[in-house]
């Protein structure tokens, strides 16, 4: 009896003595990341961010574990089996980047029925019991026109570089761009090419269409294609238009060079791979008992003239600008969705 009290007292003293001792209710909870693909730089950065942020969270005792699992073949059946294994392994929450929006619903339902929190992000799932952190691609397109309207109040001719034909993301961003042009009718899209989100493809496509175009004041893009477009314009005697960038290292580097040489101004927008860490914090908040709406929206990572240098510095060569989210960021996103 006496000994127990002593133990308790010393434990309490220890808690007080260690500064920053986390007292979250989730300290015994385990979170798993189920990821369907790791074969490009965006996904690699996503996994690195996950490791960095969750590693620190585990060390601080916010959660007990946060392990990442990636399937080898990017197949629905394989990831469904993986989720079922994670259920068996006793995780309290599964953070999910899904291979299919609907194909995993059966496995996700199994997880929910077992009392597990499922938070999907980037590749979200439609199963109603899961949380979704989705990207508002339309807004990403629309915000480009809004920016250009601020820079060019009189409007002008725009060249649109699209992504990979037939892919959902390409349709969404383009729909947003066209909605933006309707909102700001002083702009006109005079040409449209597919750049496949790749610099070399975009350069060829833009070089091919340029001779048939009138003067172009702005280029709206989808990311990964801005550097190629700039190269295509540089090869002609046209004036360099405002090319919206997509946070890639080559795009930011070129922008920085131009900025230093002639004060070139533009902006850059894309989704940070660190969104996986946002999903982690959302899962932690749900485990903590916070009331979280099922549908959340990923904030964009926007780079402007004044924060170009710091973002370029932290971006790896060949990679994409990244940001790791904090608990406070997640709380802000939740609060925005709760309104």
């Amino acid at each position: 009896m006496m000994r127990n009290q002593l133990l308790l007292a010393s434990a309490a003293a220890l808690c007080l003595a260690v500064p920053g001792f986390a007292t979250a209710d989730t300290s015994d909870k385990q979170i798993a990341l189920s990821n369907n693909y790791a074969g490009n730089s965006w996904r690699q950065a996503m996994l690195t961010s996950w490791e960095k942020v969750t590693g620190a969270a585990v060390e601080e005792g916010v959660v007990a574990a946060a392990d990442a699992f990636t399937t080898a073949e990017n197949q629905v059946t394989e990831q469904a089996a993986q989720i079922q294994n994670l259920i068996l392994q006793g995780y309290d929450a599964i953070v999910l980047n899904a291979a299919s929006p609907t194909g995993l619903n059966g496995a996700v339902k199994e997880a929910c029925d077992a009392g597990i929190i499922v938070v999907s992000f980037d590749g979200v799932v439609t199963e109603p019991c899961a949380w979704r952190i989705a990207v508002d691609f339309q807004e990403m397109g629309r915000s480009q026109i809004e920016y250009l309207a601020g820079r060019l109040p009189d409007g002008g001719n725009l060249l649109e570089i699209r992504g990979l034909a037939g892919v959902f993301v390409d349709d969404e961003i383009s729909a947003g761009i066209h909605a933006g042009v309707e909102e700001y009718p002083q702009f006109e899209i005079v040409g449209s090419v597919h750049g496949d989100w790749a610099s070399d493809v975009a350069q060829r496509a833009v070089a091919g269409i340029l001779p048939s175009l009138p003067d172009v004041q702005g280029v709206v893009t989808q990311g990964g294609d801005g550097y190629g477009a700039a190269q295509a314009f540089a090869a002609t005697d046209r004036e360099m238009p405002i090319i919206v960038m997509g946070n890639r290292h080559d795009e930011l580097t070129w922008w920085k060079e131009q900025k230093d040489a002639n004060g070139y101004e533009t902006m850059s927008v894309s989704i940070a791979p660190g969104v996986s860490t946002l999903a982690f914090w959302v899962a932690q908040q749900v485990l903590d008992g916070v009331e979280v709406p099922k549908d959340l929206t990923v904030p964009f990572l926007r780079i402007d003239q004044d924060n170009l240098e710091e973002n370029l510095e932290t971006t790896q060569e060949g990679g994409v600008a990244n940001v790791e989210y904090t608990l406070e960021d997640a709380q802000a996103v939740i609060a925005a969705a709760s309104e």
């Binding site: 197949q75 194909g103 059966g106 339902k109």
Partner: peptide
């Protein structure tokens, strides 16, 4: 049986099979 488990399908769902 596969659709009974996944609740939906896509054209590449069983390529591993």
């Amino acid at each position: 049986a596969l659709v009974g488990l996944t609740t939906s399908a896509d054209a590449n769902i069983a390529l591993r099979y």
